[in-house]
């Protein structure tokens, strides 16, 4: 029996924090690729500490719904899941290449496959592009458009910037958008000055965050100048200093994220059948609006 456990941050304050986790779990359940799909949280229930004891399967794949490798994926989750003998060296990662480690979880005395975070998987690049398609309602968006991939800078986590640059570079390499830039919230190039970094009249701004919350709903819209105060809301697109900014909100809410979760589990050895094709098909952006 094959089980998928999606672990995410969650929130004590914001009910929207766990919404993408539940949505992607539901999408994956629909594919039937796993006998069970469970969710566990740092700030909600079941907690990381107790989620494994709710799992029935003997082939357990744990996928962190986090953007980058760092404190949570390297310290908190392995500790709270009680992965016996965990050492970050198990991943042998350069900050982007964590794939999986197979360890016994002491809580259930069974092996689990502990996967790298979704945010650094190569398939995440497609989710960022899909997010741009969703927010513009154009499955072919690219010509005459710039794309800004935005995240924390290195102040909080060195690997956060690595993940953003990695995906921005990959998208640039596809020659789909006229311009692609990695921008940051707390270091240069700063998202506050977005129009200065683009020549295109239209720029899609995709924040590399898992869930909508303070950063994506208050910080970034105000910093970029989409609104004076987030409570006023903003239009999509909104023109700022001559640039039409198509603000996408957290990339993690894009339905195609389910695909990356599946990819992570498949890379760790899960048999997922045709689930990837199913998810790509069911989460497509329809042409026209």
């Amino acid at each position: 029996m094959q089980s998928l456990v999606i672990v995410a941050h969650g929130s004590h304050l914001n009910p929207e924090s766990s919404a993408p986790t539940y949505d992607h779990a539901d999408t994956i359940r629909e594919t039937g690729a796993f006998d069970e799909v469970k969710t566990g949280f740092w700030k909600e229930e079941p907690h990381f500490r107790e989620v494994l004891r709710t799992v029935e399967g003997d082939e357990v794949y744990v996928v962190p719904l986090f953007i980058s490798e760092g404190y949570f994926t390297e310290q908190v989750i392995p500790r709270e899941l009680r992965l016996d003998g965990w050492d970050v060296a198990e991943w042998d990662s350069d900050g982007l290449s964590a794939d999986q480690a197979t360890l016994v979880a002491e809580d259930i005395d069974r092996e689990v496959h502990y996967c790298g975070p979704v945010g650094t998987h190569r398939a995440m690049t497609d989710v960022i592009v899909r997010r741009a398609e969703s927010v513009t309602g154009d499955p072919d968006v690219g010509d005459d458009f710039g794309l800004a991939v935005v995240g924390h800078g290195t102040e909080r986590n060195e690997n956060s910037a690595k993940a953003i640059e990695y995906h921005a570079d990959r998208i640039a390499g596809r020659d789909r958008f006229d311009e692609v830039r990695a921008l940051y919230m707390d270091e240069d190039p700063e998202v506050d000055d977005l129009p200065e970094f683009f020549e295109s009249d239209d720029v899609v701004l995709v924040p590399l965050f898992i869930a909508d919350g303070y950063h994506t709903q208050e910080d970034i819209p105000e910093d970029v100048g989409l609104c004076e105060d987030h409570t006023q809301g903003y239009d999509v697109p909104t023109e700022v200093d001559g640039t039409r900014i198509w603000y996408a909100g957290a990339v993690g809410t894009e339905p195609l994220m389910a695909d990356v979760i599946l990819e992570r589990a498949a890379d760790a050895g899960a048999d997922i059948g045709t689930a990837l094709d199913d998810v790509r098909e069911t989460t497509r952006v329809a042409a026209g609006d």
Binding site: P46, H47, R53, T54
Partner: peptide
Amino acid sequence: ETIYPATVAN
């Protein structure tokens, strides 16, 4: 288990 997560397991 959805309404009271992990309570039955514990």
